[in-house]
């Protein structure tokens, strides 16, 4: 019966005595032409990325397939708790139970938000659930960009780290603007059990140089499944040249998991 999840949190002193202050949230959306009663999708970017990373291809594609698609950028200087708060705030502001989709560290934010909000479903894309493993991979793949960040410096993500081949035009300039990894990414606090028992999908690439295959398998096993794999792609599946394949597979999975629209 024990699945490594933390039990429900009834007494929430942190929220009651020291609530996360409101902040202007950058939310980007692409909406379908007609309402097919599909649940909204809320994409949550990881370290060094913003809502733009999904606005590039995935939001429009999902809208084209009939899903109202949103992405929320991390608030500047926000810690993990503030990011979880922002995701739950945006999800609760939408008219229907929302599907949460997180990428990289954004997947960790989603995994935590699942303990706070009964998502319709969740997708963890190349999830950084274990900060130490991700750090090890990052140091190996990009030592000069990663190590300074451990000592208060700026994180510099490299193309080699995030993409299988060359980085798409213009993407590298937008990466990592002002982002510093937060120490709480390296805590191994238990993830909350998702409330409302939503279906959870883990997706990634065996050739990802940030989240490697064993980490994907562990993440999927935690949520009781096997990862959906896209060989030959890098960490940034949504920005790779082959971006259609993963988003189509994710939307197919959603369509299968949510037989009655919107329910």
């Amino acid at each position: 019966m024990s699945t490594g999840f933390a039990g429900p949190e009834l007494v929430r002193f942190a929220d009651w005595t020291d609530p996360v202050p409101p902040a202007a949230r950058e939310v980007v959306s692409r909406l379908p032409d007609d309402d097919r009663e599909n649940p909204p999708l809320l994409f949550v970017p990881g370290l060094g990325h913003g809502a733009w990373a999904f606005a590039e291809h995935w939001l429009g594609h999902a809208a084209g397939r009939g899903f109202p698609a949103y992405a929320v950028s991390p608030r500047p200087g926000g810690d993990l708790r503030a990011r979880v708060h922002d995701v739950v705030q945006v999800a609760a502001s939408l008219p229907r139970r929302t599907v949460l989709l997180g990428h990289g560290v954004g997947a960790l934010v989603v995994a935590r938000a699942l303990g706070r909000y009964p998502a319709r479903a969740a997708v963890l894309v190349a999830p950084v659930l274990d900060g130490w493993a991700a750090l090890g991979s990052a140091v190996r793949a990009n030592p000069s960009g990663t190590l300074p960040a451990l000592f208060g410096g700026r994180l510099r993500l490299s193309a080699r780290q995030l993409f299988a081949g060359a980085a798409p035009e213009g993407v590298l300039d937008r990466l990592g603007a002002g982002s510093r990894p937060r120490p709480e990414l390296l805590t191994r606090a238990a993830l909350p059990r998702p409330v409302g028992a939503p279906p959870v999908l883990v997706a990634g690439s065996p050739d990802d140089r940030v989240v490697r295959r064993p980490a994907l398998d562990r993440a999927a096993a935690r949520y009781g499944g096997a990862p959906l794999l896209f060989p030959g792609m890098g960490h940034d599946l949504m920005l790779e040249t082959g971006w259609t394949e993963p988003i189509d597979a994710i939307l197919d999975w959603l369509a299968k998991e949510l037989p009655a629209p919107g329910l």
Binding site: E9, L10, R12, P21, P22, H85, Q89, S93, R116, Y117
Partner: peptide, 9 residues
């Protein structure tokens, strides 16, 4: 409600 916060604004 603990799983459906009021708007923080």
């Amino acid at each position: 409600f603990p799983d459906f916060p009021m708007p923080d604004t």
